[in-house]
Amino acid sequence: SASLEDVKTAVLGLLVILQTKLYTLPASHATRVYEMLVSHIQLHYKHSYTLPIASSIRLQAFDFLLLLRADSLHRLGLPNKDGVVRFSPYCVCDYMEPERGSEKKTSGPLSPPTGPPGPAPAGPAVRLGSVPYSLLFRVLLQCLKQESDWKVLKLVLGRLPESLRYKVLIFTSPCSVDQLCSALCSMLSGPKTLERLRGAPEGF
Score class of each variant (00 low, 15 high):
11 V>K: 01
142 Q>T: 12
58 R>S: 00
197 L>E: 03
3 S>A: 11
175 C>H: 05
130 S>Y: 14
188 L>Q: 02
96 M>W: 14
204 F>A: 06
46 K>Q: 11
135 L>D: 13
93 C>D: 03
192 K>D: 15
13 G>M: 00
43 L>E: 11
156 V>F: 00
85 V>S: 07
13 G>N: 01
34 Y>K: 00
96 M>T: 10
178 D>Y: 03
45 Y>F: 02
148 S>E: 11
38 V>E: 01
94 D>C: 05
113 P>Y: 13
8 K>S: 10
102 S>W: 15
113 P>D: 15
153 L>Q: 01
27 A>N: 07
106 T>E: 14
176 S>M: 05
152 V>I: 10
143 C>P: 00
151 K>A: 14
116 P>E: 11
195 E>K: 11
78 L>R: 05
7 V>I: 08
132 P>W: 02
53 I>L: 09
15 L>C: 13
41 I>N: 00
106 T>A: 14
82 D>T: 08
47 H>P: 01
58 R>M: 01
134 S>M: 07
139 V>A: 12
4 L>P: 01
111 S>T: 12
68 L>H: 03
110 L>G: 14
82 D>L: 09
83 G>K: 07
148 S>M: 11
5 E>A: 10
165 R>C: 07
194 L>Y: 10
193 T>A: 13
11 V>M: 05
163 S>A: 13
26 P>C: 03
93 C>Y: 02
109 P>S: 13
37 L>E: 00
72 S>D: 08
42 Q>Y: 10
117 P>Q: 10
52 P>T: 06
30 A>H: 03
56 S>M: 13
158 G>Q: 12
198 R>P: 03
199 G>W: 08
55 S>D: 15
135 L>S: 13
101 G>D: 15
171 F>H: 10
19 Q>W: 04
40 H>I: 01
163 S>W: 05
75 R>E: 03
18 L>G: 02
195 E>C: 09
16 V>T: 14
85 V>H: 08
8 K>W: 05
97 E>S: 11
169 L>M: 11
69 R>A: 04
78 L>E: 02
150 W>M: 02
135 L>W: 10
76 L>R: 02
178 D>L: 03
106 T>R: 12
132 P>G: 05
158 G>W: 08
49 Y>I: 03
41 I>Y: 00
29 H>E: 06
170 I>R: 03
203 G>T: 08
203 G>D: 10
52 P>C: 04
168 V>E: 07
